[in-house]
């Protein structure tokens, strides 16, 4: 469905940030893109969605193909019209607009009114907190609520390919689980393909069909989640599991918290 081939991106005129990574998202697939801070993950999906242009970024070589069409360097609004929606990193809601207006902006390119209404209801059903605040300025939502809104806005566009940049950023663990179950649901129910950038590698690998690790602007590793799970490097750097097999994931953290603060046991 989406094919990125040897793409090179510079910011300004000189700084080479992407050094020719290639990547593929199959129809109806969920692909995870992992990597350390500054590896170039956000840059890679901005290169796909056309948002690079607004940041003085430029694709200097390589191609982006979507369903066989060359969309390399295409303007962002045309990319959205083709069915690719990019949920930008860091809950960028329109602060002055109400929750509902934010969602409406997400559905800006849509023509079908009925589908628009039913998607709105779907999002309010899934995030009742947004429904309660639908007439409120989005700027006054909590961080987590803003993230729900940013994701909801992406669903309003009914894209064929959803690019998610760190959807779990700053969310409580329970909400992270919910968001990921939503992503999975969108994928199976609507056949939406998903390219997922995540710091939380454990949970990203748990829903992905395929994963890539980006290091310093190049693909360092790629494979099925099980293969990456088995790789020592990924275990150590991205999953927080040391070679001694001691798990320091979310479960272990929770156990620690419980024994340290027994009073918190409800």
């Amino acid at each position: 469905m989406l094919k990125v081939e040897n793409i090179q991106v510079v910011y300004g005129d000189s700084m080479l940030v992407l050094k020719g990574p290639s990547l593929e998202v199959p129809e109806e697939g969920i692909v995870a893109l992992l990597g350390a801070n500054g590896a170039g993950k956000s840059t890679l999906i901005k290169a796909i969605s056309g948002l690079l242009a607004s940041e003085q970024g430029k694709i200097i070589s390589g191609t982006v193909l979507f369903r066989g069409d060359n969309i390399t360097g295409m303007a962002a609004d045309d990319v959205v019209r083709r069915g690719i929606f990019h949920v930008i990193e860091g809950r960028r809601v329109f602060q002055e607009l109400t929750v509902e207006e934010n969602l409406a902006a997400g559905g800006y390119t849509r023509k079908d009114r009925a589908g628009f209404r039913s998607d709105l209801e779907f999002i309010y059903d899934f995030f009742p907190r947004l429904a309660e605040r639908r007439r409120q300025s989005a700027g006054y939502l909590s961080g987590g609520e803003q993230q729900m809104l940013a994701i909801g806005r992406g669903l309003m566009a009914r894209p064929q390919l959803l690019l998610l940049d760190e959807p779990s950023l700053g969310l409580a663990p329970l909400l992270v689980q919910e968001i990921f179950s939503l992503i999975r649901r969108i994928n199976t129910e609507r056949k939406t393909a998903i390219l997922l950038v995540e710091q939380n590698a454990a949970i990203a690998l748990s829903i992905a069909d395929h994963a890539y690790v980006l290091e310093n602007g190049a693909i360092a590793m790629s494979g099925k989640p099980e293969e990456l799970n088995a790789s020592g490097e990924v275990r150590e750097f991205y999953l927080g599991i040391s070679e001694h097999g001691e798990r320091r994931g979310y479960k272990a953290m929770k156990e620690e918290m419980r024994s340290a603060f027994p009073a918190h046991r409800a």
Binding site: S49, G50, L51, S54, E55, A75, A76, D77, V79, V80, R81, F85, H86, V87, I88, R92, V93, F94, Q95, E96, L97, E101, A104, A105, G106, Y108, T109, R153, A157
Partner: peptide
Amino acid sequence: KSGLAMRATASSRQTALSMGISV
């Protein structure tokens, strides 16, 4: 819809772009 697009652009140009709004 055009009014909404204009307000969204005023709020954040890049985010408006990502919605498919032609700035």
